[in-house]
Design a protein around this nucleic acid. Structure first.
Length: 880
RNA sequence: GCGAGAAUGGCGGAAUUGGCAGACGCGCUGGACUUAGGAUCCAGUGGGGUAACCCGUGCAGGUUCGAUUCCUGUUUCUCGCACCA
């Protein structure tokens, strides 16, 4: 293949350079990678995007971070897997169908095509041979097969449950998808509705998911681990059974969960949730029946509209029933209370008003007894009559029979032992984590592969009939639930077991199911026989570095960790496959920008937002061009369409080039911090590349006839240049390596450019040092700004891309100095500097310091009481 | 309320292991070149002071010869969770 090398123009012109190199990389399939080789393999992945149609700056940042590491790793000889694909199922496609009368499939694939082009224009080095789209039947058929195995293994199951239902999206949501009582997607209120739903038994893995964090410490952001830990919400306590005084319908006890068994002797009543099966039955047939029923109904109804989350007033009603304290035998009343949750613990709690704030408030309101059983050490004894809040700290047990005087922490175990003896309870662990609700009443998702038969119940779709392909001839109106349920030929099937007419399941999977294993699929993306070719796939795992947004801290990352374990346990992978799929995680910050707004004159409650181009500066005030009205400058917030503060990557690429865009987002802030978009900032990045271009162009003739320095005597000037060069090589190497801080790497390269520009190469040896430095700069630049780097490399006589060129080697000798200048402090302040031999001892250092005029002046009239000498670093004199 | 994180010039940020605070970039100031400059190049740029020097990393303490870094308290902000028994 022959490529025309452009002449080296006066000015750097990314618009000409970038498409040429992109074509070359593509033609050479430069980013394709084979199987893991077992040596120097590296799997780097960025979270797969939803194909909304256009990429945004958040994507640019995410992929720039990934690509800079990937390209660096390749140059260091790693075999890097760096794939890209599409999280292609999901609601926006259905909304597009409703709003624009486009079929979700067409809309999705067009978006994919468009975004793929945008990504390619940025020069990211993906192995496109491994591309996947999760909406493709060749992908989801494996998901369906896995689900059937999970069904067999009891990991997947179906139950009627109160589910979070979003009326707007007409679908149920997992707990994780409800944010402040609202749907995470559309923001509408979520209500509770009882439905038959499919679940995956994430709770079975709760402990393992928690334990797995140990392996991730230091490699995942602490924040993410904390969020997951809180979400799993493990608490240690006891399950205690209280015998009902009068059994109802054969039920003779009520079980509660508590983390404070040490307060058992302080129980003065029991509280149960309105949804608890016993709530209404306890009062059935008594004068209280109606009151209890009404109360339970009301609380349940209130909970159906969950928008007002927060601590409501404590409220409850006496059921009329009582139970017996398992140790003292005392009679304890049972209340239905609004603050007890059915889906945590057992849905019933033992109330210890003296030592639990909620119970305290409840007891005060309903004039229930308060009994102190924990006494703080060395403080005034607590008095129920004067207490204004529950005492929840530790102390010694009192009023607790034989356990009086025991430290409450020890008392916990003793009470559990006592209960075990009486067969009334046991130590147990409770988790906040719920099973994952995976069914969605949506069209654009992977069909759940089961059939409902009147005779045989739930029947899995036989393997040979997979995949259950999503029918294409559907009418999407956005009303009346899932379009699949109205699709006659899809729904009406015969039972695979008995052959009688049956109904096909019309729910589809939550899209988090697809994103729970796509990273596995990338390893063997065209494997037909199953989701992965286990052995070959295992060799790529775990993912060495996963990069994405913090917003996926809980849901996606927890589900993926769960799914990976299930796949291993079901035998899709060899048993020794790492159970943690993501060995290291980098969560990049948002891309933000200021926004312009003003109050709507016609409707003061309404805020109007303006695009920057709709405004201009007039005499120092930013105004709306059309009306002349001043706008307020809002804070720097995440780019969003609604705030009209988005920057289109395409426009940036055509104006400044991909290299400048990449360089800017990498330079502007450390990866975890937010980046504030600034036009001036990207101009700075562009200017830097211009200066690199000019520096090389101005010296090109000389450089082309010079080879890089290898050995020989050097002038002081050249030695200094090489010292700077190799210090910077070392810095950039570590910034892209273990430090993962490309921002400081960019700064180092800028310093190198400044040094090279200032360096006057006169002798042959100095010229060879310059050539060494220029070659190194171009290579250091390659991961950040690959197009210009490859272009400059060719202009310097190199052949082909730097993609697999060697990374500049750090020469420790170049950095070595025989003497070093160190600061001299007198009483903590720097008063001078002295140049010392590397091996100078303290006495020599002190003598040199005392010889310094300024140091001497500060020591005038004082005695040096103490000397601290850190060789090569600092000399500190303490003088009085 | 609970948990986690952050706070450094006019701005984004740097300081990698407790050792010269402010690297690098933006912006700004002055100058050069120029018909022109929103291009480019040079110089300067934390505050105060003629200077010596003093002050300075949200605030108040502490440890240390030495603290942006470690400890205690506190304020503000961001994020997460939120009646979880």
């Amino acid at each position: 293949m022959w490529y025309q090398t452009a002449p080296m123009h006066e000015r750097y012109n990314p618009a000409e350079i970038e498409p040429r190199w992109q074509k070359r990389w593509a033609d050479e399939r430069a980013f394709s990678v084979g199987d893991a080789t077992g040596k120097d393999d590296f799997y780097l992945l960025e979270m797969l995007p939803y194909p909304s149609g256009r990429i945004h700056m958040g994507h640019v940042r995410n992929y720039s971070l990934g690509d800079v590491f990937v390209r660096h790793l390749r140059m260091r000889g790693k075999n890097v897997l760096h794939p890209m694909g599409w999280d292609a199922f999901g609601m926006p496609a259905e909304n597009a169908a409703i709003e624009r009368k486009r079929h979700p499939r067409d809309w999705t694939y067009e978006n994919i095509a468009q975004m793929r082009e945008q990504i390619k224009k940025l020069g990211f080095s993906y192995d496109w041979d491994r591309e996947i789209a999760t909406c493709d039947a060749s992908y989801y058929k494996h998901e369906q097969a896995m689900f059937l195995r999970m069904l067999e293994a009891g990991v997947a199951y179906r139950k009627a449950a109160l589910a979070n239902f979003c009326d707007h999206c007409q679908t149920v949501l997992a707990n994780e998808q409800v944010e402040e009582g609202k749907c995470w997607r559309c923001g509408n209120n979520v209500r509770q509705r009882e439905m038959q739903q499919w679940f995956l038994r994430t709770t079975k893995y709760a402990q393992e998911l928690l334990d797995g964090h140990k392996e991730l410490e230091g490699k995942w952001p602490e924040q993410v681990l904390t969020m997951q830990r809180n979400w799993i919400g493990r608490s240690t306590g006891a399950e205690i059974r209280f015998a009902l005084k009068n059994p109802v319908d054969g039920v003779n006890e009520l079980s509660v969960f508590t983390t404070r068994p040490d307060t058992l002797f302080g129980v003065t009543f029991l509280s149960i949730a309105a949804e608890h099966p016993l709530a209404t039955r306890l009062a059935a047939g008594t004068p209280r029946e109606k009151e209890v029923q009404d109360f339970a109904d009301r609380i349940r109804a209130e909970r159906r509209v969950r928008h007002d989350v927060g601590e409501a007033n404590k409220e409850g009603v006496f059921t009329g029933a009582t139970c017996l304290h398992p140790i003292t035998g005392a009679e304890v009343p049972i209340y239905v209370a609004n603050f007890v949750l059915m889906d945590y613990g057992t849905g019933a709690v033992m109330a210890v008003p003296a030592h639990d704030q909620r119970d305290f408030e409840f007891a005060q309101k309903y004039k229930l007894p308060i009994r102190v059983v924990i006494q703080p050490e060395g403080a005034q004894p607590l008095d129920p009559a004067t207490m204004t809040a529950a005492y929840v700290e530790g102390g010694f047990m009192v009023n607790s029979g034989s356990l009086d005087g025991t430290l409450n922490e020890i008392g916990k175990e003793k009470v559990v032992a006592l209960l075990a003896e009486k067969n009334a309870g046991r130590g147990t662990i409770s988790y906040r984590l719920r099973d994952w609700l995976v069914s969605r009443q949506r069209y654009w998702g992977a069909p759940i592969p089961v059939i409902h038969c009147e005779t045989d119940g739930v029947v899995p779709v036989p393997q040979k009939d997979l995949p259950v392909v999503l029918p294409e001839d559907v009418e999407i109106t956005g009303e009346g639930g899932s379009p699949l349920a109205r699709h006659e030929s899809f729904v009406n099937v015969s039972c695979p077991k008995c052959g009688k007419p049956a109904r096909r399941e019309t729910d589809t999977f939550d899209t988090f199911v697809e994103s729970s294993w796509y990273f596995d699929r990338y390893t063997t993306p065209r494997h037909e026989a199953g989701p992965v070719d286990g052995e070959r796939a295992r060799n790529w795992l775990p993912i060495d570095l996963y990069i994405g947004g913090i917003e996926h801290a809980v849901m996606h990352l927890l589900y993926a960790r769960f799914w990976q374990r299930v796949m291993i346990d079901l035998g899709y992978f060899p048993k020794d496959t790492p159970r943690e799929p993501f060995a290291a995680l980098l969560t990049q910050g948002m891309v933000c920008k200021e926004f312009y707004h003003r109050q709507d004159a016609l409707n003061p409650a309404h805020t109007l937002y303006f695009y920057p181009e709709e405004t201009e500066l007039r005499e120092g005030t930013r105004v709306v061009i059309a009306t002349g009205e001043p706008v307020e400058i809002g804070g720097v917030v995440k780019m969003s369409k609604s705030k009209r503060n988005i920057v289109d990557p395409d426009e940036i690429v055509s104006k400044y080039g991909a290299d400048s865009a990449r360089l800017f987002v990498l330079f502007a802030a450390p990866p975890e911090a937010q980046v504030d978009w600034s036009e001036a900032g990207i101009e700075g990045a562009s200017r830097f590349l211009q200066r690199v271009w000019r520096m090389i162009r101005d010296r090109r003739e000389m450089l082309l006839t010079t080879s890089p320095y290898t050995s020989g005597e050097l002038s002081e000037n050249a030695k200094t240049m090489r010292r700077t060069l190799h210090k910077i090589i070392d810095r950039v190497t570590r910034d892209l390596g273990e430090r993962r801080q490309p921002n400081t790497g960019v700064a180092a390269m800028m310093e190198l450019l400044n040094a090279l520009t200032a360096f006057e190469a006169k002798t042959a040896a100095e010229k060879s040092v310059l050539r060494e430095g220029v070659d190194a700069l171009v290579r250091l630049l390659a991961p950040f700004a690959p197009h210009i780097a490859d272009e400059l490399h060719e202009h310097l006589g190199g052949k082909g891309t730097l993609l697999h060129a060697s990374w500049p080697a750090f020469d420790a000798d170049a950095v070595h100095e025989d003497s070093v200048e160190i600061p001299v402090q007198v009483n903590g302040k720097v008063r001078g500097r002295v140049r010392l031999a590397n091996d100078a001892n303290e006495a020599t250092a002190l003598a040199a310091a005392q010889a310094d005029a300024n140091v001497a002046a500060h020591l005038q009239g004082k005695t040096v009481k103490k000397t601290i000498y850190i060789a090569g670093k600092i000399l500190t004199l303490v003088a009085v």
